[in-house]
């Protein structure tokens, strides 16, 4: 059984905490330490950001982290090295998240195989909707890697079904129309949307975009099976005085959320 399926099968009433961190931010070694910190703070699944020059679905924090990562030489090879290093010390599922062109440039089949060898468990490619993903899906299926697609508040019921059936194990629900980013207030329409998803999806789903505090996480988890938190972690690290304080901020934020969630 795949690591992701084990995690999902064993979760019971436990809500999933899914931190997102960009490989190479603020530098390669620290990004690995950040991921290890996240795992120690109770991450159930880790999303590793593969930096891209033109992250059109991302807000300022993740844009910034990608720019820094690219500037210090983080390429797709380094991304795979990061997976290997993290995998060496942990069995937590690792999902790679990033834009399609870098994956395409390395060769979809070759990159999927290399990711699998390195110990990754799945992919989220926000600019590759289900309609464009047929070849990619075949590659992932052969390797038993998980394909995770997004649903959004603007997705029609038909598209929700389409995404549900294309996802291998779980679905990623974008909480609000917009780019990634912290410090948003969720409205009752977000609750209604997530509630609707919990009925219409056959698979578990995690909610992301704009999760910044234990309160927002708890609110989303009334209907979602877990939360993704990314921009808020990068923001917490950026605001800290130094590397050690930054790691501590990230640990505290994740631990607080973990404690608040069932």
């Amino acid at each position: 059984m795949s690591r992701i399926r084990q995690t999902l099968a064993g979760r019971g009433k436990h809500k999933l905490l899914v931190p997102f961190l960009t490989v190479g931010y603020p530098d390669f070694d620290t990004s690995i330490d950040l991921v290890r910190t996240a795992i120690d703070s109770g991450a159930d699944i880790v999303e590793l950001g593969m930096p891209f020059s033109d992250p059109m679905a991302d807000g300022p924090q993740i844009q910034y982290s990608s720019q820094i990562a690219l500037a210090n030489g983080t390429d797709m090879k380094k991304v795979l090295q990061a997976v290997e290093q993290i995998r060496a010390g942990s069995g937590v599922p690792i999902v790679l998240m990033g834009y399609f062109n870098p994956v395409w440039a390395r060769g979809v089949e070759a990159f999927a195989a290399a990711s699998h060898r390195a110990g990754a468990d799945g992919f989220i490619i926000p600019d590759l909707p289900v309609e464009e993903a047929a070849d990619f899906l075949l590659c992932l299926k052969d390797l038993d890697l998980s394909a995770i697609f997004l649903v959004a508040p603007t997705s029609s019921p038909e598209r929700v079904q389409l995404v549900d059936s294309a996802c291998t194990d779980f679905v990623y629900a974008v909480t609000v129309a917009g780019v990634t980013g912290a410090a948003r207030k969720f409205s009752s329409s977000t609750d209604a949307y997530l509630k609707g998803l919990s009925r219409s999806l056959s698979r578990p789903f995690v909610a992301g975009f704009g999760v910044s505090s234990p309160e927002s996480a708890v609110r989303l988890c009334r209907h979602a099976d877990g939360v993704v938190i990314g921009s808020a972690l990068i923001s917490a690290f950026r605001q800290a005085k130094n590397r050690r304080e930054g790691l501590k901020s990230v640990r505290c934020l994740l631990s607080d959320i973990r404690k608040a969630l069932p």
Binding site: M56, A57, D127, P129, A152, S155, R159, G178
Partner: peptide, 20 residues
């Protein structure tokens, strides 16, 4: 119908945009 000019074109966009 899928917006392809031969192999080119398509819709490589985030899910939120598809409806628009």
């Amino acid at each position: 119908v899928r917006g392809r000019f031969g192999p080119y074109g398509g819709r490589y966009v985030p899910e939120t945009v598809i409806y628009a």
